[in-house]
């Protein structure tokens, strides 16, 4: 499996604050990868690094086999639809298509025109007068018609109403099916990610908590409910992600490759949302305690 994005010990520091630290991950090609995490976890920073908008402070990042933003050949391979889907307010829709055609040798004009027509956008409309959803569609059109190997989308649907959101995702998925491009998108709408993604990265407080194929993640994470017990007594191959106790009962979310044999547990599957929340909540709790408590928790994960 070839990687479309490979980061090693990647870090980015703004003035004095680290927005991303020690990020090591691989995103396989041909997948739609979702990036989730709370606000300020470093999602945008990671995506901006991948698009070459930022340069790393530490570590390395390689996208489509090259250093992000290193030259025209690299820029041609990566499409990026930034947060809030910026467009030139004073330029018309057709001006934007012309911009794309003039600035990208790989521009697929037929695709762009077909999309604009199907979306019902008036080519003579100024982009500043478009609705949020239409603007997002225009920005997505620019990203798709460039025909990149990897399309990066930073919160592409965050500001949209449910209908516009669905339309954008439908078009995106259709393009993925048609052109086989890889996609990395960030969102905090887990329900959307569950639909469109087959690969997931959970980023919390500037660190990668877990990454993997969604089906695999769901198959290896379980909710255990049973009589109260100390989690230290669990088998070594069961990694506790979250635990809560009442005086009688213990509820755990664990990760394990092996079948759960202990008959005391009632085992159930968990959804993606619960899985993501378990990881986010875990770090929030551990992070609020002493700094030394955090490291072992991460070691367990790896």
């Amino acid at each position: 499996m070839t990687a479309v994005l490979r980061a090693r010990a990647l870090g980015k520091k703004y003035q004095r604050r680290w927005a991303l630290t020690d990020c090591t991950l691989e995103i396989p090609a041909g997948h739609v990868t979702g990036l989730v995490g709370p606000n300020g976890a470093g999602k945008s920073t990671l995506l901006n690094l991948a698009a070459g908008m930022l340069t790393p402070t530490a570590g390395t990042i390689e996208v489509c086999g090259g250093r992000p933003g290193s030259g025209p050949a690299q820029l041609a391979k990566v499409g990026y639809v930034a947060q809030d889907t910026p467009t030139y307010a004073r330029l018309t829709v057709s001006d934007h298509l012309r911009l794309g055609a003039r600035l990208n040798p790989s521009w697929d004009d037929a695709l762009a025109r077909r999309r604009i027509e199907r979306l019902g956008l008036d080519p003579n409309q100024r982009a500043g007068k478009l609705s949020g959803g239409q603007r997002a569609q225009l920005a997505l059109t620019l990203g798709l018609a460039k025909r990149p190997e990897l399309l990066i989308l930073d919160e592409p649907v965050a500001a949209l109403d449910p209908l516009a959101r669905r339309e954008v995702l439908q078009d995106l998925m259709e393009a993925v099916a048609e052109h086989g491009l890889s996609v990395v998108l960030s969102s905090h709408l887990v329900a959307d990610l569950e639909r469109v993604c087959d690969h997931l990265i959970v980023l919390v407080t500037s660190q990668v908590e877990i990454t993997g194929e969604i089906d695999g993640l769901l198959a290896t994470h379980h909710r255990l409910v049973g009589p109260r017990r100390d989690i230290a007594t669990l088998p070594a191959d069961q990694h506790v992600i979250s635990a809560s106790h009442t005086d009688r009962q213990t509820t755990l979310i664990i990760r394990t490759e092996a079948p759960i044999l202990d008959p005391a547990w009632t085992v159930s599957t968990i959804g993606l949302e619960d899985l993501v929340l378990a990881y986010m909540g875990r770090t929030a709790r551990v992070g609020s305690g002493s700094g030394s408590g955090r490291r072992p928790a991460l070691e367990v994960l790896r």
């Binding site: 041909g30 997948h31 739609v32 669905r166 995702l169 439908q170 078009d171 995106l172 998925m173 259709e174 993925v176 099916a177 048609e178 639909r195 469109v196 993604c197 087959d198 089906d215």
Partner: peptide
């Protein structure tokens, strides 16, 4: 077709392929 399913449901093509 995969493309039709994907365009209708807004789901990942790999899901349909699988």
């Amino acid at each position: 077709t995969v493309k039709d399913v994907v365009a209708r449901l807004a789901i990942n093509p790999n899901t349909v392929l699988k």
